[in-house]
Design a protein around this nucleic acid. Structure first.
Lengths: 334, 334
DNA sequence: CGAACCTGTCGAAGCGCTTCGACGGGAGTA
DNA sequence: TACTCCCGTCGAAGCGCTTCGACAGGTTCG
């Protein structure tokens, strides 16, 4: 492996000059720059990441803690990850992948100076990692919204607004009895922030609009969906509108509705909160509120970089939800 | 941040002694070791990863190139990733995540000494990355099997055997006309290695057993599945057995079969090649050949570590497929 | 016409760690 | 008793880079 010294020799300059050519932190005359670049190209020189990190205390690596575990919708997770990695590459950074259950992982990579910054997904309302994160030298961005975000940057879809939007749309379409089929119990039990927030928004909008409503959670299996749908429709047979916030249960919920003979949208309207591609992959294209995972992941990177450059304070950004009407809803009556 | 020097001072020893305590590369007396460990604990010392990498030319990081792109079944990818990350942590390594379309990513992280080794997923038959990989200083393991694996280690499910196993099972159950519903066209067009191999194995077993057979590819949408199922059953109405190697199309294929009034397994038997959890999440539990993603990911790490330690030659390991009978198949006639 | 200022380059220090060779002292051997 | 050997520890070199201060030479301006 060629070193900066080799390049310097080949170009007839000092190592520091090569370094300045690379970093642009001091002006270099055009001819010199050209010679150096030439030497770099012919030698195939790449700066040694470790040496660079040691000297500059910058690794150009972002740590990403992702939930590679059950109960979480994989395709949503993937989109977030993709967004983070893609945007990180745009700003010349790489991504080190940490898993949720790697307790101590945050501490390890942060204290060991393996990363410049950290992004954490799937945050719970009272996430046990928060104190750790606050204690780190590196800036952190949460994807999700804990109860007390003090000192930490957060970004997420405004799930509360999404819950409201879903219920609001149903109300507007003329439904009077509605229900939310929510995240799996294991997700709710952890008080994962987005799950709680959807419920809150949904309830609130229903109250505001005077809708009779119900909230059930749903194990994302055929049986789980059957149980959830039956619970809702048996308890309140007048229910005509459903908000579903459970990507994996979606197909089974629709199947159960069909099985029971409820036509969608004629007899039961469905609004899904899920990535658009999931909404489109169902038996009929669903009216949905998109979870723009890639976008949010990208924003997380931007936020973390902003804090890395300027010493900005922490901020919270909630992305406004948007509802796209498709075949699973229709205005009622006339 | 405490440095090794701080620890040394606190423990009343030299820095090199601390280093030897940490690495275990020389023997240290029990009392000294204890004092050093004590100092490390009280100071919360963590070695600086960059400094360590610089001095030892070992980063304890594995690069993982994963396909965060369309056409690939996310949940399978996730399982591989989980397997890699989990096993990597077991052997005290971290994982740097690269995406497929980050051309130059391999070169960058390898030449920049960011990683000790590389694992590449979703390999195509004539993958353009192979020459690059062969030129790297770091050992590489492919998850998948290219035409010419010379010089590179490979691990994967034996998809050819899986194709054979699926067809063989159908034959054994008494089916005479069968079909394979395979990966999406975009995956086939890339000649992604596993897709090709399933087809080959399937065809071969059908030929051996004298089964009339057909192979179609399937866009993983409701319409795509409809088209695939219709194509098969309209062309050969006597078809009674299906092997499906397309995780995302699975629910739609089953739905279409139901729609057409074909009972599973009474009239059409279905063998799926997919992760077990996917097979269990369908409308009925499917007879399936598991894709043991986590396991394979773990094996990939083991192989890469083996090459890192000893200077072993490259090897190829194919995991034998196993078929688990469930509700979607049954012996025919009697 | 000097003082003050740029520009472009260099040398050296230092980032925090690993590792090699050296060395003092105690145990083992002849 | 003298010699060798091993054990536990230390000091120093060096990994490859960044960055600070210095400096030579050229401009600019009052």
């Amino acid at each position: 492996m060629a070193t900066i010294e080799d390049v310097a020799k080949a170009a007839g300059v000092s190592a520091s000059t090569v370094s300045y050519v690379l970093s642009g932190k001091r002006s270099i005359s055009a001819p010199t720059r050209r010679r150096v670049e030439q030497a770099i190209a012919t030698l195939g020189y790449r700066p040694h990441a470790g040496a660079r990190a040691l000297a500059s205390s910058r690794t150009n690596v972002i740590g990403l803690m992702a939930p590679l575990r059950s109960g979480v919708d994989v395709s949503v997770v993937m989109q977030f990850v993709t967004g983070v990695v893609t945007r990180a590459r745009d700003v010349d950074h790489d991504v080190l992948l940490l898993t949720q259950d790697d307790s101590g992982g945050l501490e390890r990579v942060a204290a060991g100076s393996m990363v410049d910054a950290i992004i954490v997904m799937d945050v719970e309302a009272d996430d046990p990692r928060l104190p750790v994160l606050r204690s780190l030298r590196q800036p952190t961005v949460l994807i999700g919204l804990p109860h007390d975000p003090a000192g930490l940057s957060c970004v997420d879809l405004d799930f509360e607004a999404a819950g409201r939007l879903g219920a609001g749309r149903l109300a507007q379409d003329g439904h009077r009895e509605v229900a939310l089929i929510g995240s799996p119990p294991e997700v709710m039990d952890r008080h994962t922030s987005y799950a709680d927030r959807v419920v809150r928004g949904f309830r609130q909008a229903c109250a505001d609009q005077g809708l009779r409503h119900d909230v059930v959670h749903c194990v994302p299996t055929p049986d789980g969906a059957r149980a959830a749908v039956d619970a809702v429709l048996d308890a309140a047979p007048g229910t005509t509108g459903l908000v579903v916030h459970n990507e994996r249960a979606l197909p089974h919920v629709l199947a159960r509705l069909a099985e029971r003979g409820h036509d969608v949208p004629a007899e039961v309207a469905v609004v899904a909160i899920c990535p658009t591609d999931v909404a489109l992959a169902q038996r009929i294209p669903l009216t949905s509120i998109d979870i723009p995972g890639e976008h949010i992941g990208g924003v997380a990177v931007d936020m973390v970089m902003a804090r890395l450059e300027g010493d900005r304070p922490a901020e919270t950004r909630l992305i406004a939800p948007e509802l796209t009407p498709r075949a699973s809803t229709a205005a009622r009556g006339a």
